[in-house]
Computed example of a mutant assay.
Amino acid sequence: MSRHPRVAFTMNREDHASAFPAPLLVELSAFTEIITPEPLTELSSAQARAVLAETEILITGWGAPRIDAATIGMAPRLRAIVHAAGTVRPILDPAVYDLGIRVSSCASANAVPVAEFALASVVFGLKRASRFVAQLRDTKGVRDVRGMPPIGANRVVIGVIGASRVGREMLRMLRTLDAEVLLCDPYVSPAQAAELGVTLVDLHELCRRSDAVSVHAPLTDQTVGMIGAQELSLMRDGAVLVNTARGALVDTAALTAELVSGRLDAYLDVVHPEPLPADSPLYTLPNVVITPHIAGALGNEVVRLGELAVAETARFAADGTFEHEVRSVDLAIIA
């Protein structure tokens, strides 16, 4: 690799502009040669092929085309991919690793706003904010706590499913609450759970004991529908389900039945299918808040991804290492 490695971008233009404002591109150009400041939005044109032929570090992001062996074949000098977004799974063919390409992800930067959103959802959910909003709309000013589930986040039990990057950031943020925190994750040992300051339990115990459950597991063949009718039935009356991970982790039909009955509350940033059918009752229930997949970095949060991508590129240019490397063995278990 040259002393100043040649860098190119592939992602959608809007996120590129948000993640890499001019001052950050100036910082990046201090230790790299940016082949073109404009991101490649496709990799098949003659122009894209010409850029790839010179690229040593490829910075990807949301909207990037899938990177596979054919892509690497067009980039003989490529040594590393830095993903300025969350998970690399949608864009990265595992065959890339067989060709010796190193990969880094900025998922840890994206984890911050997701965990902030999840924490806010837990607090709002336990405060019964959506129920009070609906009540206020109907009564035009009357607040009545009669018939409400238990209100507040003081001395409650909060269950976190998945010690992913977002899950761990959520665990850190939960320390601000006066709450007992349970964790379900098959890849975490009791000793590691102790270091995280949480109690390790299985999924059913977590569902039984928690006043609020926050989902942060990856979506894999093994986790699809992991929260189904049985798990939901174990949750105590008035429990709050928060999902900022993937909609397919939860059985939508089973959850809908529980929410229509009014037994549970839910704050859902992801659903399955996404979006839900227009006639879904979840859009109008007073005990449900649905947001359109906004927990991850948006607006002024996106620049965090660019900053971390530049830091990772600087590290790789200096000594060939990454702080946030994604290995081939990680693909099966990461979000």
Rank of each mutant, 00 (worst) to 15 (best):
A153T: 05
D330M: 06
P21N: 10
A84P: 09
F117K: 10
L24H: 05
A297W: 02
E42N: 13
S44Q: 07
D269L: 00
L249G: 00
M173P: 01
L174R: 08
A85G: 08
A212V: 03
L206M: 08
M226Y: 14
D185A: 06
M148I: 02
R131E: 12
E205I: 09
Y187W: 14
A191P: 02
T291A: 11
V224P: 03
M1F: 01
R165Y: 13
S44G: 11
P150V: 00
V310P: 01
P281T: 08
A193D: 13
P39K: 14
E231Q: 15
L241F: 12
D269F: 00
G299E: 03
D279W: 12
A46N: 09
G228E: 01
V198I: 15
V7T: 08
I227M: 14
Q222H: 15
L78C: 03
A193I: 13
A191G: 07
A64K: 07
A95V: 02
I161N: 07
G167I: 01
L58D: 03
P190G: 14
L171T: 01
A191T: 07
V302R: 11
G159M: 09
L203R: 14
T252R: 15
D185E: 06
A30R: 14
A266W: 08
T291Y: 09
I101C: 07
G167D: 02
F132S: 06
A53D: 13
A75H: 04
E205S: 13
T176N: 09
P65W: 00
I57D: 15
T41C: 05
L305N: 07
E195I: 13
E14A: 10
C184D: 12
P113Q: 01
T10F: 04
E258N: 04
A50V: 00
A239E: 11
V103R: 11
S328I: 05
G225N: 03
A107N: 04
T291F: 10
A194H: 15
D68M: 03
Q192T: 15
L219H: 11
E42A: 14
L136N: 13
S164N: 13
T36N: 13
S328L: 07
T176G: 12
V289S: 12
A295Q: 04
V329Q: 12
L183A: 11
A153R: 02
N154G: 03
E169H: 02
I101A: 10
S214L: 12
D330T: 02
V288I: 04
V157F: 05
E33S: 12
S2G: 02
A309M: 02
R13Q: 00
G147M: 03
D330S: 05
V288N: 05
L268W: 04
A107D: 00
D237C: 11
R246W: 01
L234G: 08
L25V: 09
L177M: 13
E205G: 07
S18E: 11
L219R: 09
S130F: 01
